[in-house]
Design a protein around this nucleic acid. Sequence first.
DNA 1: CTGTAATCCTGCGAGC
DNA 2: TGCTCGCAGGATTACA
Length: 287
Amino acid sequence: MPELPEVETVVRDLRPLLAGRTITSVRRSAQNLRRPWEEQWTATITGTRIEGVRRRGKWILVDVRGKSAKDSPVLRVHLGMTGQFTVVNASEPEPNHLHLVLALDNGTELRLRDQRRFGSAEFFPSRGTLDTAMNADLGPEPFGMNAETFRLSMVGTARNLKAILLDQTIVAGVGNIYADEACFRAKLHPGRSGSSLTADECDRLREAIEAVLTKAIASRGSTIRDYVGGSGLRGGFQNEFAVYGRTGAPCPTCKTLVECVRLAGRASHFCRSCQLSAISRQPDKTK
DNA sequence: CTGTAATCCTGCGAGC
DNA sequence: TGCTCGCAGGATTACA
């Protein structure tokens, strides 16, 4: 479910609900998420005060203030495919697939629910160390990327655009939905190789990524099935998809029927008329 | 270096 | 009505 726009929406929703709150108790299910919860984390996190909530790529970072004044620990959460990270009143009935519950000092609870358990929740003792480690594994945030850096990372590989966009070390936060939507907006076939792109096409793709993500955030992300924001609201961008999940439906630009192929192991949607699979022919300058 | 497939899970819709 | 199959927003690993 959650790609950058969904994670950003969760973070924006949670921020006012969590800032300044103290975690009074921690409760978890018997089942592990992608990473097992270490027992000592429960005691370490209990009694801490939440300083803020951030996003990096598709990761949610809850910064807390440790009990000793110089601590700056972080709770890091990934929503995987079906994760839901919400604040509700503690009196709300507990849904199934609930894996981590942080009780807060105002009668609310921060709940992590994840049907498929592809998500994760981990605790790190040092914010600075964690940020450094994450920056080593993740590419730049997609907003305001350096044009030259982006061109070099595209042109330097024979992989197709879909595989490149899903690679979190190239650009952080793009997933299957927004990779397809960005390629459509840039009028580039997702099967094109990075090395086949002209400088102009690289720029178009970079701008398309930014534009698609910005519009999706404005619509509070996309809900296909499970996704909800930090206050439980569904997204709205699924109603604005140009190609994702629209196999056989008319392209919003030219009415050609949208097709779906498998690229980088993922369903990839495109319009064969709008998204040329070869470099578009330039007008003959000699005439 | 690239691509493909399998893996971790549960649930849903399609087709028989 | 009920069964099996394939597929789903992600990420990592092994292998050809």
